[in-house]
Amino acid sequence: MSEAVIRIAELKNQFGSQVVHDQLDLQVKRGEILGVVGGSGTGKSVLMRAILGLRPAQGGTIEVLGETVTSGVEPTRLRKRTGVLFQDGALFSSLSVLENVEVPLKEHYPELPPALRRDLAELKIRLVGLAAAAGTKMPAELSGGMRKRVGLARALAIDPELLFLDEPTAGLDPIGAAAFDDLLKTLQQALGLTVFLITHDLDTLYGICDRVAVIGQGRILTAGTLREVERFDDDWVRDYFHGPRARAARDATAQGGH
């Protein structure tokens, strides 16, 4: 369990003269769900984009599944082993739901027979809790929650080892968010996924995250289990984890027995 699948060392990111990250270190261990929290504008999404190699870092190294992302070479092998859910699903608007889920299968496993590919895509759509009939719909016809589920199905299509989620429960109603959390936990346990999860949602943090990393002032302020992070001495962390919402989420988790 202790093997690190993501290693970030001394990462530096900046836009023009504005430094977003400086000397940022973080490790994500195999098989865990790591929740990344931080105030608005602290660079959570920038960190995810840097790990995925979507934006070049200005310094430091990032290693994902043994492959260096920061070398400037497109990490092609990595694309076959990671899945990403962007904030609004980022579904291809010209393709139907089923075709969207089939895209990574076609790209990475072109040798699959079409019937099996279709079955696999359909299985993923049902796995994320949608009716198989949703496959013929176009993304524009879906609600926000459904778009996220389809995005998750697409991210899971090729059975990745590593899953990146950018605010998966933002914009969902509390019932939908709780269902999404349950789904994520079930899938993570069943498929043995490692999950890098950016969130603002305290219920998600308390409900499903194994470890939490707090990002602020350009670096990781603290990373550890919720118990450890709650005790960390910082104004933002204290306000975040000891406000009324955090208390409610903690109580709910204690009662629910997650």
């Binding site: 009716a131 009939a133 013929t136 069943a190």
Partner: peptide, 18 residues
């Protein structure tokens, strides 16, 4: 665990052919 999760999902109805 994995097999049961997949078996449950595969049980539900298949999409109708267009």
């Amino acid at each position: 665990d994995l097999f049961e999760a997949i078996a449950r999902a595969a049980e539900s109805e298949h999409a109708p052919e267009p």
